[in-house]
């Protein structure tokens, strides 16, 4: 039984290979990039604008609002990373309505890649905000004893991110595949709809968790600074 689109390999040359995950990811990337380009080609700056522009503005401003609500004070700075995370996962899930398509987020390789990006981005944003020493100090808070636990926490939450997304997306595709073989009518459609909902929820959870981690990294020292100032 095939668990991941990684297993569908179209071309391989030693270590390098072109599987369904990478192909569908390119498809999603193409869709997002071309779609954005088409809509933003003729952007209106006055009060009259197209429906597509309205849609994209709503999406972008909603993402920014969510980032801000998590606690990041300058959402534009994190919009590129967090917004793209959300849009990629959400689009990958929405495209499951296309027959023959398999979501690249149903591959553990993709989710690990995304989790690794978060794993790297969090300290990067933290260091940018607090400096290297400031960020590293947060690992020995409140005492040095907590250092290994903090490191374990970083790794485990990254793993959890990857596995959570993979498990949800893979299970959705699996359930639909199994149901298609058992009851080919009606019920798979309902499950597909449920899968769409699950995909959207997962996209939200993934990007919000990433935002929370970044927020935690950038604001780790803030309360103590405030208390020392007081």
């Amino acid at each position: 039984m095939r668990l991941s689109p990684d297993e569908i390999i179209f071309w391989q040359h030693g270590f390098i290979k072109l599987n369904a995950t990478i192909l569908f990811t390119w498809g999603v990337m193409l869709l997002l990039a071309v779609g954005s380009k088409l809509v933003t080609r003729k952007l209106s700056t006055d009060l009259n604008r197209t429906r597509w522009q309205n849609l994209l503005e709503i999406v972008v401003t909603a993402i920014m609002k969510q980032i801000e609500e998590v606690g990041l004070r300058n959402p534009k700075k994190y919009l590129g990373f967090l917004g793209t995370l959300f849009l990629f996962v959400a689009t990958a899930a929405l495209c499951t309505v296309i027959p023959g398509y398999e979501p690249p987020t149903g591959s553990l390789s993709t989710t690990v890649a995304l989790a690794l990006c978060v794993f790297v981005a969090v300290p990067l944003f933290g260091i940018e905000d607090q400096g290297v020493s400031g960020y590293l100090t947060s690992y020995v808070e409140p005492t040095v004893v907590m250092l290994p636990f903090n490191i374990i926490s970083e790794i485990s939450r990254t793993l959890a991110l990857a596995v959570r997304l993979f498990g949800n997306m893979m299970s959705g595709a699996m359930i639909i595949g199994i149901l298609l073989s058992i009851t080919p009518f009606i019920f798979p459609i309902v499950m597909t709809l449920l899968g769409l909902l699950t995909g959207m929820v997962q996209a939200y959870i993934f990007s919000i968790l990433a935002a929370v981690y970044i927020a935690a990294a950038t604001r780790a020292r803030k309360p103590r600074e405030q208390s020392s100032e007081a």
Binding site: I22, W26, T110
Partner: peptide, 13 residues
């Protein structure tokens, strides 16, 4: 389940 080439490629992607 993890194909490291795919991981690298997806990261780049």
């Amino acid at each position: 389940l993890i194909d490291w080439f795919t991981v690298i490629a997806q990261t780049l992607n």
